[in-house]
Write a protein that binds this DNA or RNA. Structure first.
Lengths: 109, 109
DNA sequence: ACCTTATAGTCCTTGACAGGCATATGCCTG
DNA sequence: CAGGCATATGCCTGTCAAGGACTATAAGGT
C-alpha cells in the first residue's frame, strides 16, 4: 500500500536525524550501511527512520542483492513548497514595500 | 529574551492546530479570544500554542487593553524557504530534464 | 475597592516516539 | 542447504509534548 501522505510531513521532518538522512540522500543515493557509517546512528534506528521517510514518500528504495539502495523523492518537498507559497507572498510583499520605501529615499537625490 | 530559533521550527509546525493558527494569522492579526472562537480550541490550549509559536519567532504580539493581538512574523518562514532551496533545485533540475525531453520529442516533427 | 473580562501559568495524566538490544528475514556464495 | 551479510522488526524503556482542569495575573468598568 502506498500511504497517501497519511503521516504528517512536518512531523517526519521534525527529527534532526531524518533531516540529516535527507541531506545525505540529496547528494547521492546510498545503501542503509553507508548511511549508518556516514551519520552516527545504529542500524536498527536507521532502518526505522528510513521506514518513516519511505511511508511519507520522502524516499524510495530498490533492492540490489542484499542491499537496499535509498534515493530521495521530490514530491513531498514540492508539497511543502506549495504550503509555503502563501507565506512567501507575505514577505515578498514586505520586500516590495521596502523597495518602494528605499526608492523614495533615493528620489530626493 | 529573544529565543534565536532554539526550538526546532519543524517540530513547531508539526502540530496541526498551530498550522491552523498560522493560517488564520496569515489572513489577519487576531486576539487570543478570536482565535479560540475561530478554531475550536480551549483558551489555555490556545495560549500554550501561541507561546510555542512566539518563542519560535513565528508570531509576535502587542498588548491592547486586556487583549493580546497576535500577528504573524515572516523570518522563520524565510529560514524554512532557505532550507528548502537545495531540494527545490533537485526537482527543478528534473523539470529541466523533462523539458529537454519534450523538446526532443517535438523536434522530429 | 470589587467584579468581570482576557490571557497566561501550573500540575497532572496520557500518548507518541526514539533508541537500545535481541531477533527475524532475505539474499548470496560456497 | 549451511553460513554469512545486509536490513528489517519486535519488545522494552525513558522522554517529552499536548490537553484538561484549576489557578493566577492584569486591565477595565462600576
Amino acid at each position: 500500500m502506498l500511504a497517501a501522505v497519511p503521516v504528517d510531513a512536518f512531523a517526519v521532518l521534525a527529527e534532526p536525524t531524518r533531516r540529516r538522512i535527507l541531506d545525505e540522500l540529496r547528494r547521492s543515493e546510498s545503501s542503509v550501511g553507508e548511511l549508518v557509517d556516514l551519520l552516527t546512528v545504529s542500524q536498527p534506528a536507521m532502518s526505522k527512520h528510513l521506514k518513516v521517510l519511505r511511508e511519507a514518500g520522502f524516499v524510495s528504495c530498490r533492492t540490489a542483492a542484499q542491499q537496499r539502495i535509498y534515493r530521495i523523492e521530490t514530491r513531498p518537498f514540492q508539497t511543502l513548497d506549495e504550503w509555503l507559497e502563501p507565506y512567501r507572498r507575505l514577505w515578498s510583499r514586505h520586500l516590495d514595500a521596502l523597495e518602494r520605501h528605499l526608492d523614495n529615499q533615493e528620489e530626493p537625490r
